[in-house]
Computed example of a mutant assay.
Amino acid sequence: MTTMTTRTVRYPADGLTMIGHLALPAGDDRRPAVLVGPEGMGLSDVERRRADDLAELGYVALAFDIHGGRYLGDPEEMLARCLPLLDHPGRMRGIGHAALDVLRAEPRSDPDRIAAVGYGTGGAIALELGRDGADLRAIATVNALTTGRPGEAARIRCPVWAGVGSEDPIMPPAQRDAFTAEMRAAGVDWSLTVYGGALHAFHHPPVDHPTVPGVGYHPRHAQRAWRDVVDLLTECLPVTEELGGPRSGTH
């Protein structure tokens, strides 16, 4: 039985050489494809495993890089890089489009059927791709209720799902309200899931370095959020019969 395969891909973005993780499903046919964006610390084995899981479900998946191959475990260093990035939609879009170009150029990818899934900063990048009018079939974000420049959400061309912890101090109720107001005003097909009792980065297993306050793992909600992401992909980006049969599953 053949299985999915992975390889490292290098590409330029934001003045850096990014080092992404590409996961390919078994077979040699074209498949729908998914970008996977990391939390602010940068690409880690957590996102690589998510890309691998998506490949097992039948998708081509690229876990993209945001720091030029570095993982910023020091919270101060992470915030020093991410806060200016989050304030600069053009830079976020540049990082996102560079990864999207790599994914579209992969021969196994169906370039007309691509979704973006992102966590934290990676989710903000996915949303900015949507606000820039990128041709995506779905956008899913966790911990990324970022708002964009006035009116640009009207360029989002696909359903948007967002998940957030109810106790997340980084994405408080006021931020939820601003995000939903933006989506409603733009007429986007959107949904928001609030996971009761969860903190910021509730989906991310514990790390062996300091974190900022308000961050914590919630294993049950982490599984639920993953199922919600997979459900969105199943709806908007199905792996069809002619592409190897329907697949489903969670981890």
Rank of each mutant, 00 (worst) to 15 (best):
L192Q: 11
D29E: 12
D168Q: 11
V46M: 01
D189V: 15
A33L: 10
D177R: 15
C82I: 14
L86S: 07
I139T: 03
A115S: 07
A162T: 07
E106D: 15
T6H: 13
R30F: 04
W161K: 06
L72A: 14
T147K: 03
D87L: 12
G148M: 05
R48D: 05
S248A: 15
P38K: 05
V212K: 07
P210R: 13
H204T: 09
A144M: 08
G133P: 06
R81S: 10
A124I: 07
G37A: 02
D87C: 11
Q223Y: 13
A33H: 00
R224K: 13
V207G: 10
A181F: 12
D208H: 14
M171A: 13
A201K: 00
G120L: 05
D45P: 11
G20M: 06
M78Q: 11
P172Y: 04
R176F: 02
R157F: 08
R149P: 03
G90P: 05
T250Y: 15
R247E: 12
S44M: 07
A181K: 14
A140C: 14
M183H: 13
D29H: 10
D53M: 10
P173I: 11
L35Y: 04
H21A: 00
S248N: 14
H88M: 08
A225D: 06
P89W: 12
Y217E: 12
M78Y: 08
F179E: 03
A198F: 06
V34S: 02
P210C: 10
H67Q: 13
E77P: 03
A13W: 11
D189L: 11
F179W: 13
T250Q: 11
A80M: 10
A162Y: 00
T3C: 11
A23D: 04
A201N: 05
V9Q: 06
T141Y: 02
P219E: 08
P84I: 09
V9H: 11
L85W: 09
R247Y: 03
P84R: 07
V215F: 02
T8E: 15
T121E: 04
D87I: 09
H221F: 12
G165N: 12
